[in-house]
Simulated scan of single mutants.
Amino acid sequence: MTALVCHKLQEALYAHLKDDSVLMGLLAGIYDEVPTGSALPYLTFGETRADGMALKDRDCSQIAFDIMVWSEDHGQMEVKELMAEVDRAMKSFEPDVLDVSFAGLRFIGSNTIRQITPERMLYRGRLAYRIRAYEGVSAA
């Protein structure tokens, strides 16, 4: 499984989340790399890991990925509400990617953390998911 499959997954995730009007009504943006001076709250893509798996009839990869939400609101409530909306949106995520079939999306876990910098205090929420990818099999 190539890193390109992880990239295709991220593109599908971006399109899916960007198309969710409720989620986008709560966020200032969705980013891979956050532009300097971006308004909060926003969503970013975190770590991605692909592990190969040999099945009886084909090879596949299990991809674990993180979605992060960031807030500078006082307290954790906004970041937790954003995490709930992301998870709601993920329940309908069915990537349609040429030459790759994805299956078995699973929520792994989540956490929130307060990050203090000299300039400000942020809350970061992390949602972790896992999905299987089969190369050479079209989703359509």
Rank of each mutant, 00 (worst) to 15 (best):
S71K: 10
F65A: 04
D87F: 00
L9K: 00
R88T: 01
P118A: 04
S21K: 15
G25E: 09
G136R: 05
S38K: 13
L98C: 03
A39N: 15
S38F: 05
L23N: 02
W70S: 11
A133Q: 10
P95W: 01
V86C: 01
I30N: 01
V137W: 12
V34S: 07
V97A: 03
M83L: 15
S38D: 11
M68F: 08
G46I: 09
G104D: 14
K18P: 05
A64I: 10
L17N: 00
S101V: 07
V86K: 01
A12H: 05
R120F: 07
E94L: 00
R126E: 13
R132E: 15
A133W: 09
I108K: 13
V137P: 08
T44W: 03
I131V: 08
Q76D: 10
D32A: 08
L43V: 03
L40C: 11
T2F: 10
S110E: 13
H74P: 07
L105W: 03
P41Y: 04
W70G: 03
A133H: 05
Y14Q: 03
K56G: 07
E94D: 06
Q10K: 12
L40H: 14
S38N: 13
Y123C: 06
G52W: 09
G52V: 08
D59A: 12
F107A: 02
I67R: 02
G125W: 06
L43M: 07
R126N: 14
R58F: 13
L105N: 00
E119C: 04
G75W: 10
D96T: 01
G29V: 07
G25S: 04
V100F: 05
A39G: 14
H7S: 13
D57M: 12
R49G: 05
Y123G: 03
D20V: 00
E47C: 04
S138H: 12
L23Y: 04
V69P: 07
G46H: 06
F45N: 04
G136K: 04
I63T: 02
I113E: 15
W70F: 09
F107N: 09
A128R: 15
E85Q: 08
V100W: 06
S101D: 10
S61M: 11
M77Y: 13
R106P: 02
T48P: 03
V79M: 08
G109Q: 12
L27I: 04
T112K: 09
R88E: 08
G46P: 10
L55Y: 13
L105T: 00
M53K: 15
E33S: 11
V34R: 10
S71E: 12
L27N: 01
A28M: 15
V34T: 14
V97F: 07
R126V: 13
R88Q: 07
T44Y: 06
V100M: 02
Y42W: 15
L26F: 07
V100N: 08
P95F: 00
P118M: 07
E85S: 06
P41D: 09
G125H: 05
F65V: 00
L82K: 06
E47A: 10
L98H: 08
V100D: 10
D57H: 09
K18S: 02
A28T: 12
M68H: 12
R130K: 08
A28W: 12
L43F: 03
Y123N: 15
H7Q: 14
L13A: 00
K91D: 14
R126P: 04
N111D: 11
P41A: 02
D32W: 13
L23R: 02
